[in-house]
Design a protein around this nucleic acid. Structure first.
Lengths: 226, 226
DNA sequence: TTTGATTGTTACAGTACGGTAACATCAAAA
DNA sequence: TTTTGATGTTACCGTACTGTAACAATCAAA
């Protein structure tokens, strides 16, 4: 695993790209540069980047559209946008998300480095507040992502909420009644059998080979995670 | 009482040890590092640690054996094991206890920090799990676990509820009628004989060698725990 | 010691419970 | 619209649990 953060830089002006890469490397970051959007996504399929620096004025795609398309696919990396002075106004109109930042060209390299540092720190702190870990299961609450032994698996809303409830109450036996209250709509009435099936489906996803037995049925009482 | 948790790190690679120490200190933990197993136990005799990070591949002793030997002496500190990739498989085969965790090298420092946080929080919470104790019997009500002389035994719903009722009413003679009311379905009618058999089965499980005689029959009246 | 009542033990059968799959329903996406 | 995926419902099966009855052991009083 990586010791220092990996930063992607997507910038079509080759000189500027090299300048940024140089400074980032000097700061001890790992850097991967791209002259266009083309090869970024395949790269991300292989490597987990910590931050992207994206020029908004790329040939072909708009930088912000590219980022939006990544987000639609669940790739959620904080971004620092580089934009021309005259685009400054657009910035405020929505495409910037909570974790993001931007700078207008021409910019001061020191300021960029400072912002990178700040952004990385911020996202790192976010991880602390939002991740729930049980054995080799990691739940990212904000992103609603689940990793088991480091590999991501996809859960439905119900399954995620169910697993979340179990991890929050690890080792405690939860009755079907309680689970229905916590996980299902409070107003809708459901049979307790419904819980059985939901748990069966969850088990199937988090432990398809039935090796781990994370969730156990406690006959006559309910279920528990142990 | 310590302000921040004390974490022991046992790792023979000096660089890695220093790296871990550095990050733990930065997170505000108190840290004590060891290059080998040798001085750990004397240290534990003096100081109460909250967590240990133990490399499984130490020169001389196997990390897990060392931890097992501590446990045999009643030193019961949660452990995060660091193991090489190819040892990953052993992990499941038993030496990992309920409170423990592990990571495979090379690992992500952030993830280690997350797991430390989670583990510390969990063990802290565990202290508050509500338990009912009678002599050497421990009932954990939320988890529905029963320990006798420290060893867990498994009870069915009926047996657990029965034992619970007895411990709640220790030294009091309980009539079969009362027990039927308390433990069995209130609506279903049962013979009083049913209680006899249920208690016989419970006795069998909590005292198979018939040494303890926890539950005693009071002729003509009922049963009591004494 | 004997006797009858009470309790313990065992075997057996019925039941309830949980797992599973198949189907139905619903909502969202294409 | 059609299609897809998510969720609820139902039915069925195997099994763990539990009630019952029959019998054995024990106890207490005579």
């Amino acid at each position: 695993m990586r010791k220092s953060p990996l930063i992607l830089v997507i910038e079509d002006e080759e000189d500027l790209l090299e300048l940024i890469e140089y400074h980032l490397l000097k700061e001890g970051y790992e850097v991967e540069g791209f002259l266009s959007v083309k090869n970024v996504e395949p790269f991300l399929a292989e490597e987990e980047a910590d931050l992207m620096i994206v020029d908004r004025n790329l040939p072909g795609t708009e930088g912000s559209e590219f980022v939006a398309s990544l987000r639609a696919k669940g790739i959620d990396i904080p971004v620092i946008f580089l934009s021309a002075k005259d685009q400054e106004r657009d910035i405020e109109t929505g495409f910037l998300r909570g974790g993001d930042d931007y700078m207008t060209k021409p910019f001061n390299m020191n300021e960029l480095l400072l912002r990178i540092k700040a952004l990385l720190k911020r996202t790192k702190n976010d991880l602390f507040s939002d991740r729930l870990i049980y054995k080799d299961i990691v739940l990212d609450l904000k992103r609603r992502e689940v990793f088991i032994e480091g590999k991501e698996i996809s859960l439905t809303r119900l399954e995620f909420d169910l697993l979340y409830t179990f991890i929050k109450n690890r080792n405690v036996v939860l009755s079907r009644e309680y689970l229905l209250e916590q996980v299902w709509d409070t107003d809708a009435e459901h049979q307790e059998k419904t819980v059985n099936v939901a748990i069966k489906r969850l088990k199937e996803k988090i432990d398809p080979k039935k090796e781990k037995r994370y969730i156990e049925a406690i006959r006559g009482v309910g279920y528990k995670l142990c």
